[in-house]
Design a protein around this nucleic acid. Structure first.
Length: 474
DNA sequence: TTTTGAGTTGTTCGA
DNA sequence: GTCGAACAACTCAAA
């Protein structure tokens, strides 16, 4: 095969050039597609395609992260004498064109499970004139590796988890010795703002080590304390693939309950991905069809108040403000805010799912959809629908000193620890001392929790009853 | 085919 | 203040 770049003087004998298409796997360590590419070819070009269709649906925080992490990947490649080749356009056209230009005999990438990605990747494979190799490098186990006797993904987590634990695997192979292409193409977009603390694969590895040393022992209780940063905070590294989930599992001592609990979270992550791979309609349909007939209120004023952090429930508002200003939110607060939208405001979970996914720096279709369906009680193994979070109780339990609320709802900062969780119950004197006038400085609650709870139980009960009646008559 | 056991993160009510 | 029960009876997966 003629080599248009004239790079045929390779130490690897008759090996040919290859192309590695990076997407959400921005690391060189423990990356199955990268290892395959660098083992099978004399030279590998590392490509990233800026896909405008995808970028349009990507909110500002995730986009900013992406650019920083691309720069970090470029740094990893430079350390090995290469560069990240960046192109802008539709991958269905760009990837085959680059493969042809470089004379690549195979294109490598790590597969993904989202409906958009699977459709796009199928089209790229059809358009390629050479082969493609597409392992699953962002999950511990690939879809299809953990199934029931009937060959489908378990619809209860416990059964999935038992099989997941019992399925053996090893770290993926080490990278090979291929030379790395050093054509930077049209160049990286300029990174905006301060680089994230957890930058690139070295940052991710250091953050994991720090978490294991500092917080893992207390993970079971610590992960529920909102104002602290006692969770692993690895979600962005997992989202962009700057760390290998297999490396994470191997790094944790699973003889302790805390270690087991933490690794279990990675099993949940695999489970949600496997479920979406099996059923691409999950972003738009309840896993339990009876809950597709709930009569949502979808009140526009309520939805706006929720998005803006003006519901009158301080813990919800703190979370929603943190989200819209930073793209981050503690897991416990995500549950409280999501439960509030669905069960207190009776708003369709899909509206909240789309909003979170747009803004979250770690936003990922499979995880976001799985978790929203869990909160809404519409999925398998979901929270029972009558399990409705009380935002005030949650706030007192998980942010007892009101530290988190004061950080994001400064107009309430002078309220004492008792009043700050439910300012509408505070005495006029307490409010006056704290210089809070409800309805002026901070809203009255837009909904009464007890009444809203009853309303939601009615709506869910009705949806269930009408569906079972329909099925009974069929 | 039938049976059996299990089932992330909660809240409210009444004794 | 603390405790257990009710919430609602499912469905799934495996034996």
């Amino acid at each position: 095969m003629p080599d248009p770049s004239g790079r045929s003087d390779t130490p690897n004998g008759d090996r040919f050039p290859g192309l590695m298409w990076f997407r959400r796997d921005l690391r060189l360590d423990d990356n199955p597609a990268w290892s395959a590419a660098t083992s099978q070819h004399c030279e590998v070009t590392a490509l990233y395609v800026l896909d405008d269709r995808l970028l349009r649906s990507t909110g500002p925080f995730r986009r900013r992260q992406l650019v920083h992490q691309m720069h970090a990947l470029d740094g990893s490649l430079r350390a090995r004498g290469g560069r990240l080749l960046v192109r802008r356009g539709d991958p269905i056209a760009v990837v085959p064109a680059e493969a042809s230009r470089l004379g690549a005999t195979c294109v490598h990438w790590n597969a993904d499970v989202s409906p958009y990605a699977t459709k796009r990747d199928g089209a790229v494979i059809s358009a390629l004139r050479v082969g493609a190799s597409t392992p699953f490098g962002h999950l511990v186990l690939p879809p299809g590796a953990v199934v029931t006797g009937a060959g489908s993904v378990s619809k209860v987590f416990g059964a999935f988890h038992r099989k997941w634990q019992a399925t053996p695997w090893d770290p993926w192979p080490e990278p090979g010795d291929a030379r790395i292409g050093n054509d930077a193409g049209q160049g990286l977009p300029a990174a905006e703002g301060e680089p994230p603390m957890m930058l690139g694969e070295e940052g991710a590895r250091a953050a994991l080590e720090y978490f294991i040393a500092a917080s893992l022992d207390d993970y079971i209780a610590g992960r529920d304390r909102i104002p602290e940063r006692a969770t692993s905070e690895m979600s962005i590294a997992l989202r962009f693939g700057t760390i290998s989930p297999r490396r994470m599992v191997k790094a944790v001592d699973q003889t302790s309950d805390a270690g087991k609990t933490f690794v279990r979270q990675l099993a949940w992550r695999d489970w949600f991905a496997h479920l979406l791979a099996e059923d691409p309609t999950l972003p738009s349909h309840a896993m339990r069809p009876e809950f597709d007939s709930i009569e949502w209120r979808n009140d526009q004023d309520d939805i706006c108040a929720w998005k803006e952090g003006k519901t009158g429930y301080p813990i919800v508002d703190a979370g929603m403000r943190e989200l819209s200003r930073t793209g981050a939110m503690h897991n416990r607060v995500r549950m409280i805010a999501a439960s509030f939208l669905v069960k207190d405001l009776l708003v369709d979970w899909r509206i909240g799912e789309r909003y979170f996914r747009h803004l979250l720096a770690d936003g990922d279709v499979s995880q976001n959809v799985g978790n929203w369906q869990w909160v809404a009680g519409t999925g398998p193994d979901a929270a029972p629908y009558f399990r409705i979070f009380n935002p005030t109780t949650q706030s007192r339990a998980h942010d007892p000193g009101g530290t988190y609320i004061r950080r994001w709802v400064p107009e309430l900062a002078r309220l004492d620890d008792s009043a700050i969780h439910a300012p509408w119950n505070a005495t006029p004197a307490t409010l006056a001392v704290a210089e809070v006038e409800l309805g002026h400085d901070y809203p009255f609650p837009i909904v009464d929790h007890a009444g809203a709870r009853f309303r939601t139980l009615q709506a869910y009960g009705k949806a269930k009853a009408s569906t079972s009646a329909r099925l009974g008559h069929a």
